[in-house]
């Protein structure tokens, strides 16, 4: 078991209960969709999973460790083994493609020689070969999201978390991005993706976890359910 949540609850400071008693487990190599209508708690669950927020009660185990009780060093190790992608890409606007991707390797203090060879490799892998010098703001939405994905996977994470990565993309571009996610998953990375895009979920036929008003209401392979 790679990820396990135990009686996970999250109540925001304003008293809103965003998640209630979520118990789920995810095996290594799985591809999991997290769906549910707006406000169901998808983003909240993703944030808890990559430790952006702490649960109100319950806990999360990743690779056998309670991530809510980690020391500083282990938090750093956990983050080096997880990649995150967001709906709004979160790229550095004034930089080119290379710098945006290289940033993730610099942040974990990899040697420059490695960065020089590794970045073009990953860019090729996400379909942006030879685009290193281009400013990210001159790219299309789909291409920008590929840069963000390249940045998220360049450290070979065990898990890739994505919160509505196709939210701002048109259907064709979304389908392209999902192919990339499938490749990443096929290469061994566990993918957990929050989305409310029914078409994508239907087409992919993966495991689908459905939330409603903060509760887990369905967990099955296949189609979209609300």
């Amino acid at each position: 078991m790679l990820i396990q949540t135990v009686d996970l609850c999250k109540t925001y400071k304003n008293g809103l209960e965003a998640l209630h008693n979520i118990n789920l487990s995810i095996e290594p190599g799985e591809f999991v969709f997290l769906t549910g209508e707006s406000g169901a708690g998808k983003s909240t669950l993703i944030k808890l999973l990559f430790r952006e927020q702490q649960p109100t009660s319950g806990f999360i185990m990743i690779s056998g460790k309670n991530i809510n009780r980690l020391g500083r060093k282990d938090v750093v190790r956990l983050r080096r083994n997880t990649g995150v992608v967001f709906q709004d890409f979160r790229l550095m606007e004034n930089s080119n493609v290379f710098d945006n991707v290289a940033f993730a390797l610099k942040a974990v203090e990899r040697p420059w020689e490695e960065i020089k060879t590794r970045v073009p490799e990953v860019l090729e892998w996400v379909g942006l070969a030879g685009r290193e010098k281009e400013n990210v703001m001159h790219l299309s939405g789909g291409e920008q999201q590929r840069v963000a994905v390249a940045r998220a996977i360049i450290n070979d994470p065990l898990i890739l978390f994505a919160d509505e990565p196709t939210g701002d993309l048109d259907p064709n571009t979304s389908a392209e991005l999902m192919k990339l996610f499938e490749q990443i998953n096929a290469a061994g990375t566990t993918v957990v993706m929050a989305t409310h895009d029914q078409d994508i979920v239907e087409k992919m036929q993966k495991r689908v976890i459905t939330l409603r008003k903060g509760r887990l209401v369905n967990d099955a392979i296949g189609g979209f359910s609300l």
Binding site: R79, R90, M92, A107, E109, N155
Partner: peptide, 13 residues
């Protein structure tokens, strides 16, 4: 944004 990205990628404090 950069600080956040650094944090998520596992940069040390």
């Amino acid at each position: 944004k950069e600080i956040m990205v650094m944090k998520w990628t596992g940069a040390t404090n």
